[in-house]
Amino acid sequence: MEFNEGGGNSVMPVLQAENVQKSYRMGELTVSALAGVSLVVQKGEFVAVMGPSGSGKSTLLHLLGGLDGPSEGEITLAGQPLSKLSDNQITIVRRRKVGFIFQFYNLLPTLNAEENVGLPLLIDGQSLAPHRAKIAALLERVGLADRKHHRPDQLSGGQQQRVAIARAFVNDPEIVLADEPTGNLDSKTGTAILALLRRTCDELGATIVMVTHDPRAASYANRVIFLKDGQLARELSNSAPGHNTQAIMDVMAGLE
């Protein structure tokens, strides 16, 4: 039973991309990386973006996160059209509304696990002290409660990615963007990370957009979007996350 607060308008999507295009100049050539993609992500959704190499999936993620600006089209993140914002304002949106998870974790080697998780708060000029409980809870959630004083070089790849996940959620983001989060991990560790992401999505109601080329990883999403040559090629709903890998592989095979 859904209950709409104040007025009868529909729930605003967390993320909206309208006819987003991106082209790069390489010497004399203009290369089109994205040739008009539209996409809507609702709150609580776990969306996977798939596609062969060069299909533009990473470019799309960068545009969605405001790391780069589109050549054409508009992206609206948490109700804010990014094209209307300055570089600094976009940075603040990223800081407060977006969580990032990278293939290579990108933890700061000088900080321990706890500090790395708190980094977005630190960047926001906040003191970590009032957030200790929250950070501890996040580390507990990713299974690293006993590793909070370890530095990245004292942690395994899987453990580092867990820290990165905790970091992505520390500022209660509207959306978490993950770029090949299991790309650098062995399959067993990868599976654990995916299960963690799925669980977080279910339990915290988080919204996740994940780029991957791995059908098994994509199967953890509610919805899988397929890109080819910079355009939306197909879309697949997944009612049973964690399964249906074969269906995804079939679509991929059709695209390649």
């Binding site: 600094n88 940075t91 990108n106």
Partner: peptide, 16 residues
């Protein structure tokens, strides 16, 4: 470079 890039993506402004 990569670290600076990721800090920027985590919300560090150019001035920061």
């Amino acid at each position: 470079q990569r670290e600076i890039g990721s800090l920027r993506s985590l919300g560090l402004t150019r001035w920061q």
